[in-house]
Structure formats: structure tokens, C-alpha cells
Design a binder for these strands. Structure first.
Lengths: 216, 216
DNA sequence: CGATTTCTGGAGCATCAGCTCCAAATCGCT
DNA sequence: AGCGATTTGGAGCTGATGCTCCAGAAATCG
């Protein structure tokens, strides 16, 4: 459940064909993130990807199928964009650096803040059960990456024994998603910073070394 | 910027007229929360509210105007549904009770979890600037309520002096929203609980009385 | 009770988005 | 080069949806 395969629609793909397919998915992902799935017509995608109307139906049978491809693409893109930090969140420094990365990335785009996966999931959860499941799977991958780092810290004895690293990992993802949602709505990163910093301060306070205090 | 007024479209409202208007807004709010704004046709609203096609255009000139009314209605409804707890979040017990309320409320509805305001905001932020602003205003009210409680604790000396109650308040809202988003997508309240508990544990750790430890 | 305003119902219009079909152009392979 | 498979372009169909118009019913007020 990651990059390709989809529904076996990619049986024989010419190099040119694959490029066209990618162009469609990339354009669709960008538009659907900015305007939402329902707010993005296939004609919009056509123009942005510079393809003719029938291409989309050649590579994806359906708008729904295109949306699923967009989910898969966006999930991979979002997670990969956090590497190599996301794969090694096993220290306070790494967590802080990752936090900074997420905040700076959001500041980059004045318009259209937020998280592609979260936005897609929020819109589709009520109408498309399949899409909801795939978004949930994407979040599960995200959660796992964070959890692995915190578990490593715990196993190394850097976190207090009465700590639940799994809960902290999930809380970190929650703070990130809530922060990104509010970033999209408020058009600033204040909430994102407050959310992540608070969770990270909590983790810092649970570290065995130097538990004195660490003001925000 | 709260209950009524809108765009001065409510000049002369018969009792019956007001009832019809309410019926439309209520039905629209429920449908738009479940299926999204774009996924809710005005015909759907008509049927749910048991009105004829032209009613909607009699009370609201536009679908966009209806959406704005739904935002105002949902904001008030969500905030009022948290009273009287939300107005007095000035103790750890009150915060925990409020947390429990939010979690239980989410468990109530198997389908369609999440937050109406957050969902509307996420969908509309990219396309309707006016709607985005109104959702942001709703979140500001929410944030203010939480902040007042934490500031009271701080002023009473129950929080350490090196604490930033405003940041904690915003972080609490962030955890709530992120948790509700993940509740909608995962169809369980685990993430919501993890997020809120982590922030609340952080607040508890910053309380002056009994700072020993408080395991999750 | 009568006049003015408000409310209601339904027919119907224009647009647009999702989707289909088919033939021409292009590509990959031997 | 030649042949089958893939890719491309574009015209066009169909249903849904936002929205309009208008006349009749109901309510408010002097």
C-alpha cells in the first residue's frame, strides 16, 4: 500500500504514458489540496496537466480512482518530504529539528497552508469509505515513524519508565494535524508552534536527564 | 458576530418564517457536517427541512449565504454544547471533566465524528475567504474561553510563574482539533484522548501543588 | 375586515461536471 | 519497416445542481 499498483490499471505503461499519468496525478494533487476534491473539476486538472479530456479516463477509470491515486501520491510525498528526520525521531534534538522543519515549510506557502492528507481525509471521510481507509493508513504510517523514534528513546532508558511512548507519539501527530488545520484557517503558524512545542516540552519533561525545568 | 444579523436579510420575520429559516439552517448544518458543503445539494437540504425549492432563496439569497449561516449556527451550537464547563476551565478537575465530555460526545456518534467547525473550515479555507474568516473568528472565541480559564489559574498562582497560559490554551485547542480530525478519519477516539491527555498532563505538571509526577 | 406584506409551491432554465466514444497519431518491438 | 498496443484529441451526451419566476396561500396590522 504505497507508491504504485492501484487497481492493476498500470499494466503496460509507455515511458511517455507514465509521464502523462504522473503529470495528471501531480496536478490533481496540487489543485485538490488547494481547492478541495469537490472544488476541483476534471477540466481544471486537464488544463493544469496539459492533457486532453480523455486522458484522465484512460489512466484512471473514474474521478474516484484519481482521488485514490492522489491520496497515495500525497501520502508518499508528505512523508518523504520529512526525511531523513522523520525516520530518526529518537532524540529531543531530532524532534525539535523536525518541528522547525514543519513550521518553516508552512511559512513558505502564504496561501494554502495545512496538510494535504488531513485536508483530503476531512473532506472525504464522510462520503468515500475507501478513501477514508487509505487516509487512515497513511496516518498510521506517519504515527509509526514517530512511535519508532520515541520507543527507541524509551528502550534506551532516556524516557522515564512510567512513560507511554506510543501515547506520546500519537499525541505528537495529533498536535501536528491540529496545528496544520489551524494554520490553514488562521493563515499563521502560531497554533502549530504552540501545539508542537507543548507536546515536545512534555516529552522533554519526561526525559530522565535534567528534569529540572524547561520553560517555553 | 454571533447568532443573527447575517446580511440584514432578516428584516421582517414572521414566527412561522423564523421557524422555517431555522429548520433550513439546522438541516443544512447537519448535512454539510456529514457530507461536506460541496457534497450537500440544496435539493438535499430542501427534502431534509421539508421546504420547497424557493424557500432557501427566500431566506438566503445564495448557497454561499446559507453556508455562512451554517457556520454561525454551528459555531454557536458547538460552543454552547460545551457549557457550562467551557466557561470555567480554571482548574485541573474542570479540564479533565471537559476532556471527558468531548470524548464521550464523540463516542456517541459512530458515524460522522469530528468537529463541524473544523470540517467546514478545512473545506472552505481554500475557496471562500469570507467563510474562512468567520471560522477563524469562531476558533478565536473557543480559544478565548480556554485561555480565560488558564489565565485565572495562573493569576491565582496555581501555575508556575514560568508558564505561558496563552500558549497552553492554544495548544489545548490544537490538541482538540487534531484529535477530532483523527477521530473522523480513524473512527475511534484513541487519538483524541492521547492528544488531550498529553496536553492536560503537561498542564498538571506545571501546577505548583504536588509536582511529583502523574503518569498517563 | 381589508390591505399589505410575507410565505409557500412548483415548474422550469442555463450551466457545468463527469463521463463516453471513436478515430488518428504515436510508440515499442521484432 | 511493419504490426499490434498504447496514447492522444475532441466532439458530444446525460444527469445533476444552482438558481429564477410567478402566482396563490397565509399571516400581520390598522
Amino acid at each position: 500500500m504505497s507508491t504504485e499498483e492501484a487497481t492493476a490499471d498500470a499494466r503496460r505503461l509507455t515511458r511517455k504514458g507514465a509521464a502523462t499519468r504522473d503529470r495528471i496525478v501531480t496536478a490533481a494533487a496540487e489543485l485538490m489540496f488547494e481547492r478541495g476534491v469537490a472544488g476541483t473539476s476534471l477540466e481544471d486538472v486537464q488544463k493544469a496537466a496539459e492533457v486532453s479530456p480523455s486522458q484522465i479516463y484512460h489512466y484512471f477509470g473514474d474521478k474516484r480512482a484519481l482521488v485514490r491515486a492522489v491520496i497515495a501520491f500525497s501520502t508518499d510525498a508528505v512523508l518523504e518530504a520529512q526525511e531523513p528526520l522523520l525516520g530518526r525521531l529518537d532524540s529531543l534534538e531530532a524532534l525539535r529539528a523536525w518541528r522547525d522543519l514543519m513550521v518553516v515549510r508552512q511559512r513558505g506557502r502564504d496561501r494554502a497552508g495545512g496538510c494535504p492528507i488531513g485536508s483530503l481525509g476531512s473532506e472525504l471521510a464522510g462520503t468515500d469509505p475507501v478513501a477514508r481507509g487509505e487516509v487512515a493508513a497513511g496516518f498510521a504510517r506517519w504515527e509509526t515513524s514517530i512511535r519508532d523514534g520515541l520507543r527507541a528513546m524509551y528502550d534506551r532508558g532516556e524516557l522515564r519508565r512510567d512513560t507511554d511512548p506510543d501515547q506520546l507519539a500519537l499525541a505528537t501527530l495529533v498536535a501536528l494535524q491540529g496545528g496544520l488545520l489551524l494554520t490553514r484557517i488562521r493563515r499563521d503558524t502560531v497554533a502549530l508552534e504552540a501545539g508542537l512545542d507543548t507536546v515536545l516540552d512534555r516529552i522533554a519533561a519526561l526525559c530522565v536527564s535534567g528534569p529540572d525545568h524547561n520553560g517555553g
